[in-house]
Design a protein around this nucleic acid. Structure first.
Lengths: 160, 160
DNA sequence: TCAGAACTTGACGCGCACGGAAGGTTTTTG
DNA sequence: CAAAAACCTTCCGTGCGCGTCAAGTTCTGA
């Protein structure tokens, strides 16, 4: 299946674009996270644009959410099943089955979103803390510059 | 140095409180990230409230920001130097030196905050994406419930 | 006081997410 | 039509962040 038309990218190009190694892309394939859409007549991997998007998705889940590759696989698998029933909507898939899968996708997505919300909250708090720290630090250096002998200090918070 | 008064917590208590193993706490000590404030007469570790706070800080930087322990060490080290000059502010530390260290702390903190801002932005985008997905999914199941034979579908986005 | 729970210092082991070399094939390029 | 660059599979190696004994010591509670 020489699918060069729809899968134009070589593994090295994709790796460069995403800032990862070719080894990483092959590893993701081993774990069934990313199966290149095609291959050359000689057997070289050929990635489609959708593959690249999927790889970016994987890296985002890894870098931003800090998930391990197994969890990422679960998330992607749910989305894949959803996409499947969409593609096969025309054919005989019972409405009951569709609803089951869609409901499963909703559950997983909501769960995921809750985790994102958690992370957002913690990060916002962290950011506020850093901002406060910076305020104190700037006040400290202002103090040093202005009141030469005025020993009124209060840089980063005390013990706690 | 039996510092039980100011360092009342045993390693097991701290570990339980933070949801980590005692091994983890000892490991952080190996890496000079967390040195318990005191010890019992027999040599057992005794952690102060400040130690616990510091441990929580480490875990936050690990879990939320995904930093490795070396980077966390750098961040904490900068804050420690800052705290030192604050403690020794009364004694002879040149204003120039103070300003140097405070400026270094500002640089590091600002850098850290920029990374937090980055993460916040990416997470917000991710959240919006998930929200949109959920909207489509709900519309999909509504479609299934309502229009029994109405095959108008459009669940999760198409190819990309 | 004394059993048993909690702690100590070593040291080796392990899972994850790749890194990297070997030895060969495919693809590109001058 | 080479020669070089990129790719292939296979396999063992590695670094981080601990997990897990082992063998002894310290601490707590009855």
């Amino acid at each position: 299946m020489v699918t060069d038309e729809v899968a134009p990218y070589r593994i090295g190009e994709v790796a460069d674009r995403l800032g990862v190694s070719t080894r990483t892309l092959r590893y993701y394939q081993e774990l069934d996270l990313l199966d290149p859409a095609g291959q050359s007549s000689g057997g070289n991997r050929r990635y489609s644009e959708a593959d690249v998007t999927r790889a970016m998705r994987i890296l985002e889940l890894r870098n931003v959410m800090g998930f391990d590759l197994e969890r990422i696989g679960e998330i992607l698998a749910a989305e894949d099943r959803l996409a499947e029933i969409r593609a096969e909507a025309k054919r005989g898939v019972s409405v009951r089955r569709k609803r089951e899968i869609a409901t499963e996708a909703i559950t997983i997505t909501e769960h995921l979103r809750a985790q994102v919300a958690d992370k957002l909250a913690v990060l916002a708090e962290f950011d506020a803390d850093l901002e406060a720290r910076l305020g104190r630090l700037h006040a400290f250096v202002d103090e040093l510059d202005g009141g030469g002998s005025t020993v009124a200090d209060d840089p980063a918070a005390a013990p706690a």
